[in-house]
Simulated assay, not measured.
Amino acid sequence: MNTPGPPSRPLEALRELTPARVGLGRSGASMPTEALLAFTLDHARARDAVHAAFDAPHLLAELADLGLDVRSVSSQARNRRDYLRRPDLGRMLDADSRRALEKPGGADKISIVIGDGLSPAAVNVHAVELVRHLVPRLTEAGFQLGPVVIASGARVALGDEIGAVLGARMVVMLIGERPGLSAPDSLGAYLTFAPRIGLTDEKRNCVSNIHGAGLRYEEAAFKIAWLAREGIARAITGVALKDESGTALIAAKPID
């Protein structure tokens, strides 16, 4: 009878490839102290990301330096407590913000909305650099770029009302994703064709996991621009639009 040998990919090697909690081991009936302390630290970082201050003035200044038309709005969530307890308030503009945004749109206009979401920390760190990489790709594709809107107290669906008020053909919502225990500062991008109040999530495409250990700015900008171009060309986003940008990205890369 042959005795099976050790696994070819031990858990120690797997742990080097992912921040996920794999093969933590045990001490008696519990986790080892080191693993428990690491979990507690990551949990604290996730909580801190949710409650971090949204640095809207810094974003406004940095985006204005890029030559963009930048606006600032707020949802009906008056504070962070309301935002977390009443998700519906984060999906609606307050009256003053709606009046300030009203202006005619254009057939090929794309509006970028940057919302704090569930991780303002992610937006503070990543939003400007992503926009810096994204805007040239959108303009090269021939799209007219509408105002960039900084939205406080924002849920994803707030972008629908903002896009509708601006008359945008498509809205790209950049927002802080729900913090995970391995990525408290992950940014997501949601694309919606013909935005209007009342749309649900199957009408959107999402590019997620944009952060230092995840999707790089260049790759994220390529994906977002591809989805925007194809979404407007086909007049769809969401489950009807499959993300095939990977094939296009491979074709676009020069062969060494």
Rank of each mutant, 00 (worst) to 15 (best):
Leu227His: 01
Leu84Ala: 09
Ile197Lys: 12
Gly188Asn: 04
Glu102Trp: 07
Arg98Asn: 09
Asn205Ser: 03
Val70Ala: 12
Ala233Cys: 01
Arg169Gly: 09
Gly214Glu: 06
Tyr217Gly: 01
Arg86Trp: 05
Asn2Phe: 11
Ala35Pro: 02
Ser182Arg: 04
Gln76Lys: 14
Asp94Gly: 01
His133Pro: 10
Leu241Lys: 15
Leu249His: 14
Leu41Asp: 11
Pro57Cys: 05
Val135Met: 06
Gly28Glu: 09
Gly246Arg: 13
Ala29Glu: 07
Glu219Met: 02
Val113Leu: 11
Leu138Arg: 00
Thr40Lys: 12
Asp88Ser: 04
Ala221Gly: 02
Ala100Arg: 11
Ala164Val: 08
Ala151Val: 06
Pro184Cys: 00
Leu181Trp: 08
Arg178Phe: 06
Arg86Gln: 13
Leu89Lys: 10
Pro104His: 03
Ala221Arg: 03
Leu191Tyr: 02
Asn209Asp: 05
Ile197Asp: 10
Gly167Lys: 10
Leu134Arg: 04
Ala141Cys: 10
Leu145Arg: 02
Ala53Asn: 09
Gly159His: 02
Asp69Gly: 01
Val149Tyr: 00
Ile150Ala: 04
Val50Gln: 13
Ala61Glu: 13
Arg98Asp: 14
Leu227Gln: 08
His211Val: 03
His126Thr: 03
Glu177Tyr: 11
Ala38His: 04
Asp108Met: 03
